[in-house]
């Protein structure tokens, strides 16, 4: 089974704790990495890629010291290694402009406002991970428990 990673980036420790706690349900199938800064997140993602594993999903805050979440998203979308990586901007502080930029020039997949609802977050992550697994052509059976049904079924219909 290929190793998938969810990278969480937030400069606030408590938020990171709360976030990863909510992601626990995915942990049997996906590895979760916590990062406190954009730079750290990038290092971790490069390491994951070097190991031959996949960064399936990046969940990032917007307002952080040094680099913003949108900076990270832009860098990610420009990097061919992470072409299939799905992204969530999880923030309460992104301005209209930030968000537009994230969508237009960083191909943001999803925007979630803080404080997030656990169920919404789960549903979104399921959908995005399913899309990632299908995009990458990974063995979907191994991740069945955490995949979104309708996305999976719609995709399987197209196979022969």
């Amino acid at each position: 089974m290929d190793k998938l990673y969810i990278i969480c980036v937030d400069d606030q420790r408590e938020v990171l704790n709360a976030l990863t706690e909510d992601l626990e349900v995915f942990e049997n199938h996906v590895k979760i990495e916590e990062c406190e800064s954009v730079k750290e997140a990038w290092d971790v993602m490069e390491e994951v890629d070097n190991e031959g594993d996949y960064v399936a999903l990046l969940i990032t805050d917007q307002v952080m010291p040094n680099n913003t979440g949108v900076d990270l998203l832009k860098k990610l979308s420009a990097d061919i290694r992470f072409g299939a990586t799905k992204t969530i901007l999880l923030t309460g502080q992104a301005t209209h402009k930030d968000t537009i930029e994230a969508i237009n020039s960083a191909h943001l997949n999803h925007y979630i406002e803080k404080p997030w609802k656990k169920d919404d977050l789960h549903a979104t992550i399921k959908t995005l991970i399913t899309q990632f697994v299908l995009d990458k052509g990974l063995e979907y059976q191994s991740y069945m428990d955490i995949l979104d049904q309708s996305v999976l079924l719609n995709n399987l219909r197209k196979t022969t």
Binding site: R13, T20, N28, K31, I32, E33, E34, E40
Partner: peptide
Amino acid sequence: QEISSEEARTIRKQYEKIKGLTDGQIR
């Protein structure tokens, strides 16, 4: 949590050597 996420990753490598722990437990 007193250690940074980077330090946590270093400690994680130690725990990864122990058999029988799941990814979540190790993290």
